[in-house]
Design a protein around this nucleic acid. Structure first.
Length: 106
DNA sequence: ACTGTGACACAGG
DNA sequence: CCCTGTGCCACAG
């Protein structure tokens, strides 16, 4: 493994790239998937600089809400992208129990 | 080397 | 529901 691949952010991006269409993962899920269950906050930091090529919109917070200002350009884009994948928001939040990605299944 | 900064999470009040 | 405090830790300057 190269030093670049060891970088926390790179590992975050590698996990995000695996989230299937129509599914979501929480910041904590991503952190746990790279072996650092307490680095959820850091995943958020990494997402701030996430490559556009990745399905960044599939990462939401532990309450199934979008962690971006709802009226921000990216916030609106995230909700629209998720909607395009069949994920419905009720009361500003999605159903995590139904859409949460299970890493063990891929 | 040290410090400030968060797209977080969770427990309280 | 809302808000606050605390723990957390990679990253940038």
């Amino acid at each position: 493994m190269t030093s670049t691949e060891r970088r926390f952010s790179e590992r975050v991006y590698a996990v995000v790239a695996r989230i299937p269409r129509g599914c979501v993962a929480t910041y904590g899920d991503v952190a746990a998937e790279i072996g650092q269950p307490r680095a959820a906050r850091q995943v958020g930091y990494a997402m701030h600089r996430c490559p556009q090529s990745l399905p960044w919109h599939r990462v939401v917070n532990a309450r199934g809400r979008i962690s971006l200002p709802v009226d921000s350009t990216s916030g609106i884009a995230q909700r629209r992208r998720l909607g395009d994948e069949g994920i419905v928001f009720v009361g500003g939040q999605l159903d995590l129990a139904r859409h949460r990605w299970d890493p063990a299944l891929d």
